[in-house]
């Protein structure tokens, strides 16, 4: 809480079930590295949480380049889950992440139910602070289950587009962890509410949405797809209306707290997602354009609430309904 000389206090505390954040602004997986890359521009300690790049059981080289294609107000990517693998993540990255004065959400991805179980149980051991230094942040704050990556051939989105397997993946993670489990939904489905209900049945504590929309860009000079992987995930302001619509639908379908994301670049965008039903927001591609975006968004959210007489930022969640 912050005090202002010419206004009341706005409580920014954000409760997503048992996951309590100091404010509702999070950075999205794959856009904020492992918390170091943007530290000079936007201190992790000013954020509600950071979500680290998706981790798989084994190291992955990811897809060949070109991995990026710019589109109107959007970005197609096909990074393909390049990551150092679970063991290297635990040994080299986690100790540094645990020192950060913010909640750390670890995004996990796999190719089988066993992969997800294995990662959940391996990370469970690191979910509690090891010493006093880590006690401020508390190690890992939550697991985000990526069942929505469009850039890998098996697993990923395949789990996230079938309600039964989505439920099974969440269940597998839930059985192997005491941490809050966030299910990250793919927008590449016909009925997002059905997927939300499935992960809710599987035991998810929180739902985050949306991941990228499957897309493609073709170079008319070479007459070939721009991305080496041909297709990729579209992010950025271009996808925002789709994301807002899906948050709105999922808010009506399930009782779980939601983390809204998809093209949020300004505080106005963040307010829109919260009105649609998101209790927190994640900032992704906007970081690439403006590394200060998360801080500016937080400030704008707070001002909006104060000017309209809200005492807690959570009062605006879901106001667009009914």
């Amino acid at each position: 809480m912050q005090e202002y000389s010419n206004g009341h206090q706005v409580d920014l505390t954000t409760r997503l079930g048992t996951l309590v954040l100091r404010n509702p602004v999070i950075t999205a997986s794959g856009t904020y590295g492992f918390g170091e890359e943007y530290a000079a521009y936007c201190s992790p300690s000013s954020l509600g949480a950071i979500t680290v790049k998706g981790i798989t059981p084994l190291p992955r080289l990811g897809n060949p380049v070109p991995r990026l294609a710019e589109t109107p107000a959007g970005l197609l990517n096909s990074v393909g889950l390049e990551n150092p693998g679970l063991e290297e993540f635990i040994n080299s990255y986690l100790p540094k992440l645990a020192q950060l004065d913010t909640a750390v959400i670890v995004n996990i991805s796999g190719f089988s139910l066993e992969d997800y179980s294995l990662m959940a149980s391996a990370l469970e051991e690191h979910s509690r602070p090891k010493n006093r230094d880590q006690a401020r942040s508390g190690g890992i704050a939550a697991l985000e289950v990526n069942i929505s990556c469009p850039n890998i051939k098996h697993g990923g989105m395949a789990f996230g587009t079938n309600p039964k397997s989505a439920e099974a993946v969440v269940q597998a993670v839930k059985r192997n962890t005491t941490l809050p489990v966030i299910a990250k939904l793919s927008p590449n489905v016909t009925d997002i509410a059905e997927m939300a209900k499935a992960v809710s049945s599987g035991g998810a504590d929180i739902i985050s949405l949306i991941n990228t929309l499957l897309g493609m860009s073709i170079d008319i000079r070479t007459q070939k797809p721009v991305l080496a992987n041909k297709m990729g995930g579209l992010s950025g302001p271009a996808i925002r209306p789709v994301a807002v619509r899906m948050v709105y639908q999922v808010y009506e379908a399930v009782e779980l707290p939601l983390i809204g994301m998809g093209g949020i670049a300004t505080w106005e965008d963040a307010v829109e997602f919260m009105l649609a039903g998101a209790s927190a927001v994640s900032i992704g591609t906007a970081n690439f354009v403006n590394p200060m975006a998360p801080l500016e968004i937080l400030k704008g959210l707070e001002d909006y609430c104060r000017q309209r007489g809200y005492h807690s930022v959570q009062e605006i969640v879901g106001l667009a309904h009914g």
Binding site: G33, E37, Y38, V65, R67, L68, V79, E82, N287, F288
Partner: peptide, 12 residues
């Protein structure tokens, strides 16, 4: 082809 420029996105 580059997006973030600071090593976060793994695009380049």
């Amino acid at each position: 082809r580059m997006a973030c420029g600071v090593g976060a996105c793994l695009g380049c």
